[in-house]
Amino acid sequence: MKTHKTKRATKAPAKSRPPQPRAKYILRLFVAGATDRSRQAVLRVRQLCEAELKGGCDLKVIDIYQQPKLARANQIVATPTLIIKFPPPLRRVIGNLANITGLFLELDLTTKGKITL
């Protein structure tokens, strides 16, 4: 617990201040084509953004079929992959995001949101 706290304390002032006025969350969802799985993932991310993060999401959905170079640049192996670029640390959520409620709560994003608010 203690280490967790100190880590946050050192990182927060350096990185979290500049983007504060803009989006609070930067999310990238990589999908492969318009499959059911892709659609489910997109829907679920949008829902979560609304429900758990109360807006303030910079969400981009990228189809790797259209932009294969981005798949390499972002080290995408599995699809769908949701990359949470901000706030740090970087996280990847693999899968269609189904069957999981309170994902972002679990990821400690909302708590962080509350603190920054």
Binding site: I94, N96, A98, I100
Partner: peptide, 10 residues
């Protein structure tokens, strides 16, 4: 983090 089904299309 895992959350649901995926494939290796990437």
């Amino acid at each position: 983090q895992a959350s649901g089904e995926y494939d290796l299309e990437g």
